[in-house]
Design a protein around this nucleic acid. Structure first.
Length: 649
RNA sequence: GCCGAAUUAGCUCAGUUGGUCAGAGCAGCUGAUUUGUAAUCAGCAGGUCGGGGGUUCGAAUCCCUCUUUCGGCUCCA
């Protein structure tokens, strides 16, 4: 007999060789139906794998990541089986589960291309195979046998994978006529899979390396119930409606033009108001934190970027140098603001008492991003960073770093961003040539970030190889409508550029010292931030940001003059309002997405003209009754103030 | 940059095997209506079918190419 400890700390006794599924059955028949995988002493197992020692066990259902993982990973195998029946000779790469669903990378025989119709065909086949309820059978195999098995089938990708594994830890999984190299775990049989949607085909490099062959990647998602798939597809549709590219067009915030060029956003009047409000907001916050604003040009001498190291690292992938009538004179569009700010620091000698110096600039930069990577506002070729560089003494570093975290929190709070990931991005220790600077400096910088985060009690994840080339950073990632993660706020510690630019200050000891530099952009860039903000709010911004705070609707043409008078009065009290004088039925206007995103509606007609008031309706809240313009303006001002009150405390 | 899918009116989209296929709705304009919270009526106007080549008696439709867009990969200062 063995003792099984369950998550609630209760201990049950079972005979040795009991399986996860049997444990579930002994608890309740309903659990037995829902359970998908089992975690045994921290390792996720198949439900049908016998447990022969005392163990801590957790049964994973759809609500657990481990349960969904087993389900979707099994679905990848099912898809592979379907692919194999239609296209014998297909070579399989890897087929993992992802956050939602799964994919499989494959090389089809004769470079066959898959179309939408092929996907439907595959879906049908998968359903058919699922109905056969083929069990997933696990088999331990020696490295030699595994190599033999896959070599015989010309499965060179699998052979490569096996070569990287240690003998004794290799397992195969078989279901129906399909056998795959796989660590598992899997669901008991294919019959669990009831609803299937293959979502897209894409190219993907083998092992993620650009130099390798490009395989065909098929994405899919499956569910244990048909209804769950339907719900997911509806959710996807809803998410698409929040796409910032769509809303940006509808609200006339920004545009792109093929004539101007790819990846170069242009801000329309309303978008400019929105962006201006955000800048004003951050400017105010920064002022309180002791920043001073500066302005630098959009281009710089190539020599500047050679000093900084940017030219050597990115020169050939950038917008190319700008020549002048003078032979040998070359400029570059600035890809970042740091070199300019470093030069500004050198404008005059600094005492240790002057530090920290904080130069802030909403600086527009240009980067030649690969064409396939461009994505609306979130990845553009010209964008404006809410940049600042803090030059400080080493003993001030941690404190300064933490103050930047505070600024980021103020922003997230003001815009109601609750779900973010704080990522410490360090250098890849196995790939040091990608970075500039000494080990000593890197260690100091990395340590400073880790300590500052600890002291702030910030929950972080750590990624190796994600650092900037001159220093490690702390990045704040936020997801867009479709769940794609974007880096917004970033704080970077840099010991290297101060050295390259030979920045110094005179210490209390009357000797020259090197300052440390913090690069930081709490929004990341105005463009990306607004892109993500649009998707989070679906275009319904907090009232202090929204381009039009109120829309004035005259119920007929007769009242247009009065509406104009209202507009003027509001504009004079700094309320952003517009007239919608299309003079049609009010009900018809309300359906417009454009109007739905304006917080206040002011209806004016005969009644209002007589009383000299406006009828006020707050979107989503209903009628507020009639009031004087002045009262209305004060109401908006109070709302704005309330939303931002916490900044002033 | 790579793989794949697209590109038709300001917007959202139809358009069958190449032959009344230049279409609809919304927006716009002109009238009529003067209306109080999700669609008032009538009419008009809008497009070298993304650009350029080609095949064909004939191309929105088939082929090539370029632009831009979308989904991924890679990249991301």
């Amino acid at each position: 007999m063995i003792n099984i400890t369950l998550p609630d700390s209760s201990i049950r006794e079972y005979s040795s060789g009991i399986t996860g599924l049997e444990i579930a059955e002994s608890i309740s028949s309903r659990l037995a139906k829902e359970v998908l995988s089992v975690t045994v002493n921290g390792e996720v197992w198949d439900l049908t794998r016998p447990i022969s020692q005392d163990s801590t066990v957790r049964l994973n259902t759809w609500d657990d990541k481990e349960g969904r993982h087993a389900f979707w990973h099994s679905s990848a195998h099912l898809m592979a089986e379907a692919i194999q029946t239609f296209y014998p000779g297909t070579k399989f790469g890897i087929g993992p589960s992802i956050e939602t669903g799964f994919y499989y990378d494959i090389e089809l025989p004769d470079d066959k291309q898959l179309t939408e119709k092929d996907l439907e065909k595959l879906e049908q086949k998968m359903l058919e195979l699922a109905q056969q309820k083929s069990p997933f059978v696990r088999e331990d195999i020696s490295k030699k046998d595994a190599l033999d098995f896959f070599s015989k089938r010309n499965e060179n990708y699998k052979v490569e994978l096996i070569n990287g594994l240690t003998d004794g830890s290799i397992t195969l999984y078989k279901q129906g006529d399909f056998t795959d190299l796989c660590r598992g775990p899997h669901i008991p049989n294919t019959g669990y899979i009831k609803a299937i949607k293959l979502t897209s085909v894409a190219g993907a490099y083998w092992r993620g390396n650009e130099k390798n062959k490009m395989l065909t990647r098929i994405y899919g998602v499956t569910y244990p119930k048909k209804k769950m798939l339907d719900d997911y597809l509806i959710l996807l549709e809803e998410a698409k409606k929040r796409d910032h590219r769509k809303i940006g067009k509808e609200m006339e915030l920004f545009m792109f033009s093929a004539e101007v060029g790819q990846g170069l956003p242009m801000w329309l009047p309303k978008g400019t108001i929105l962006r201006g409000q955000l800048q004003k907001f951050l400017s105010q916050v920064q002022k309180r934190f002791g920043y001073t604003e500066v302005i630098t040009p959009h281009i710089g001498d190539v020599k500047l970027y050679k000093t900084s190291g940017h030219f050597q690292k990115y020169g050939k992938d950038s917008f190319q140098v700008i020549n002048t009538p003078v032979e040998g004179e070359q400029f570059m569009l600035k890809p970042m603001n740091c070199p300019h700010h470093a030069e500004m620091y050198k404008f005059k000698p600094h005492s240790y008492k002057d530090l920290p110096i904080r130069f802030a600039e909403f600086g527009t930069v240009y980067r030649y991003e690969q064409s396939g990577e461009l994505h609306g506002l979130t990845r553009a070729r010209g964008f404006t960073q809410d940049d600042a560089h803090i030059f400080c003494r080493p003993d001030q570093l941690k404190d300064e770093f933490m103050k930047v975290i505070d600024i980021i929190f103020i922003i997230f709070k003001a815009l109601n961003f609750k779900e973010y990931t704080a990522q410490i991005s360090l250098r890849d220790p196995n790939n040091k040539e990608k970075y500039i600077g000494s080990d000593e400096n890197w260690n100091k910088a990395e340590q400073a970030i880790v300590e500052a985060c600890e002291e702030k009690g910030l929950k972080t994840i750590t990624e190796l190889g994600e650092a900037a080339f001159y220093g490690p950073k702390l990045d704040f990632m936020i997801k867009d409508a479709l769940g794609r993660s974007w880096q917004l706020g970033t704080i970077q510690v840099d010991y290297n550029l101060p050295e390259r630019f030979q920045l110094e200050y005179i210490g209390a000891d009357d000797k020259r010292h090197r300052p440390v530099m913090i690069h930081r952009a709490p929004f990341g860039s105005m463009e990306r931030f607004i892109g993500v903000l649009i998707e989070h709010t679906a275009g319904k911004f907090p009232i202090w940001l929204t381009p039009d705070q109120a829309v004035i609707l005259p119920i007929s043409e007769k009242y247009n003059d009065y509406a104009t008078k209202v507009l003027n009065l509001l504009n004079n009290s700094d309320i952003r309002a517009v007239i919608d004088d299309r003079n049609e039925k009010i009900g018809k206007k309300i359906r417009d997405n454009e109007l739905k995103r304006i917080p206040y509606m002011l209806i004016v007609g005969e009644k209002e003209v007589e009383s000299g008031e406006v009828s006020v309706r707050r979107q989503g809240e209903g009628d507020k009754g009639s009031m004087q313009m002045e009262d209305f303006a004060n109401m908006i001002k109070k709302e704005v103030h309330d939303q931002l009150a916490f900044i002033y405390n």
